[in-house]
């Protein structure tokens, strides 16, 4: 059965925007090192890697195109 991946992607884009902006980003916004890496960079790159994995899992699930 074809299923529409658009709702998932749109929801995820909103989540990603929230994770990367104020106020959530303040969680990591300090001049300190975590595991030898700057806290903010660590946070952003982690979110980034997870985002890539999530996009991969959503878009790779079917390469068929749904009609709208």
């Amino acid at each position: 059965m074809k299923q529409d991946k658009n709702p998932k992607l749109i929801l995820f884009s909103i989540l990603l925007l929230l994770l990367l902006s104020y106020p959530l980003i303040t969680v990591a916004n300090k001049a300190a090192l975590v595991w030898g890496l700057p806290a903010l960079y660590l946070y952003i790159f982690m979110v980034w890697i997870i985002a890539i994995a999530v996009i991969y899992s959503i878009t790779a699930q079917q390469y068929k195109e749904p009609d709208e």
Partner: peptide
Amino acid sequence: PEFLTIYLGPTIAAVLFW
């Protein structure tokens, strides 16, 4: 970290490619 915004924006846009 400001330079990262220029690449984080397109990452969010890439979610909306499809």
